[in-house]
Computed example of a mutant assay.
Amino acid sequence: MQDYLNALNIVFDYNKEIGHLDGNVAPIVADWPGQRYIRQALTHFHKKNENSILKKIVSVVPLLGPLHVTLNTKEQVMKIYYPFFEKLFHFVFGERKILAKKPRPWRTNLLLELAFTAWIEIKEHIVKKFIFLQKNIEYQVIMELLDNIVPASLDIYALLFRSGSFDNYVETIFRIWTLALRWHRKNYNKAPLAFLSDLFYWEKIEHPMREAIKKNLVQFNDYWVENMHSRIRATTSPKDAADNIQKQAYL
């Protein structure tokens, strides 16, 4: 937690000159550690457990990162349903090709897109032909995968979030949370729930934050931070000192 507080203190020190946080809040769209430690700091501040936490921490609002949600969901879908996607991969690219247990994001996305677009074409025929298997557990698993899980993982960021479709986005976040809960997915069985809890609370007390997110959903994006992280990782190594990493970030 202290590392996050140190980073926020840099922002707070800069704010003394510009005053942007005076009477305002700063939404921080982050991955789970970013949300967790900021929430932890807020809890300690309100319970007065830590005297070192600055009062300005109340100006910070941690929010769920939609890009993290989609990447983690796709990764988990591939992991849980690997046998299905391995057969799909071999059917498309040949038996000699090997699908990694943890494919790169672009390949995962490709397989999900192939499965979804093919399913749209054949769904009607499959349902008619195998209607007698409606209560079969294997049939239900495949139907849920192709009808529910794959579309949710593909649409949550690329379609729903980026189009600003707030209600559908929130509904799909809930669906993804139920999947993460079922799969015992560490961190992401909690992160969406925290986001939903905040939204429902703001709605209950008629707080303007919920309406601000609804009207400006596409602005609450973690893409730019993740893009910068990727660029830094591409030009540094785990053995690099902090000074070198900072230098690369400036460049």
Rank of each mutant, 00 (worst) to 15 (best):
I213S: 04
D22M: 00
V58I: 09
A194H: 05
S59D: 07
L54R: 11
W177I: 05
N15C: 02
I156C: 00
E121K: 14
L64W: 00
I18F: 05
S165F: 01
V61P: 07
I126M: 02
I120F: 05
A26V: 12
D198R: 09
L114E: 07
N49W: 14
T108V: 14
L54A: 10
K247Y: 15
D167H: 05
D3C: 02
D22H: 03
F161D: 05
A30N: 05
P27R: 14
K215R: 13
N148Q: 12
M143T: 11
T108P: 04
A241H: 14
H46T: 12
W224T: 13
N6W: 14
Y169L: 09
Q246P: 10
K123Y: 06
I80E: 12
N187M: 13
L160V: 09
D243E: 03
H207E: 04
K135R: 12
A180D: 08
L193A: 04
N6Y: 13
N15A: 02
F220M: 09
L159T: 11
E144P: 09
D198E: 10
F45G: 06
I142P: 10
I57Y: 02
M143Y: 09
W202R: 09
D31L: 01
N221R: 10
F166M: 05
T172V: 07
R107D: 08
T178R: 15
I245Q: 09
Q219A: 15
L133W: 11
A41I: 01
N109E: 07
H68P: 06
I38Q: 02
L160I: 03
K135H: 10
R175K: 14
M1N: 09
K123R: 15
E144F: 10
E171F: 08
I213C: 00
A234S: 15
F116R: 13
V60S: 00
A234Y: 08
W202G: 03
V60E: 02
N189M: 12
W224N: 12
L5Q: 00
P238C: 10
L5W: 01
K214H: 08
R36P: 02
L217A: 07
H68L: 06
D222Y: 04
Y81M: 02
K186V: 10
W177C: 04
S52K: 11
I18N: 00
N216F: 01
R104K: 13
T178M: 12
W119Y: 04
A41H: 03
